[in-house]
Nucleic acid binder design. Structure first.
Length: 152
DNA sequence: GCCAACGTTGGC
DNA sequence: GCCAACGTTGGC
């Protein structure tokens, strides 16, 4: 099983929305590296940390689970969608999505600042300067450290 | 709101 | 294939 972290701006889609919807198609990903992670390495049952970016404070707020294989991101075909991409077509989809299922909220938010203080987390992609990936792999240790921080 | 870092685009 | 210009991300 693999572990992941996904970012979202809570103004756009928050853990509240995730909890309410229970299952959400993770559409709108328009970055090749993030897409390739979803396409090549994400599997049903993988665990996902849910991260609020551009927030006060930014941090990890919940846990989700991958509940589908990668499939075409239909929002790319819709001229009305803010994620429309004329270079993607149903015959030859450029972008994909997976479905995420709400698992739980963390007892409290684990902030970026707090994660930076934990030496074992220093290698996380999330904490690296200039990191802009919206979907990134993490390892099992990082996943459990962050969960245990939230329980302190 | 600022701006550094990074990805993408397109002219050549 | 290089690289300047541009757009976006996201912490602060």
């Amino acid at each position: 099983m693999n572990y992941w972290l996904v970012k979202t701006e809570p103004n756009t889609f928050s853990i509240d929305d995730m909890e309410k919807n229970r299952i959400e198609a993770w559409d709108g990903v328009r970055n090749y590296q993030a897409r390739n992670f979803m396409r090549d390495q994400m599997r049903i049952g993988d665990m996902v940390l849910f991260y609020h970016s551009n927030s006060k404070p930014s941090g990890v707020v919940g846990v989700c689970k991958v509940t589908s294989e990668a499939k075409p991101d239909h929002t790319a075909f819709d001229p009305e969608s803010m994620y429309f991409d004329p270079k993607s077509s149903p015959e030859n989809p450029r972008w994909i999505l997976v479905e995420l299922k709400f698992v739980k909220r963390l007892p409290r938010l684990v902030s970026l600042a707090e994660m930076r203080e934990v030496p074992e987390l220093a290698t996380m992609n999330l904490l690296r300067k200039g990191n802009r990936l919206s979907i990134m792999p993490i390892n099992k240790e990082e996943f459990s450290i962050i969960l245990s921080l939230a329980n302190n």
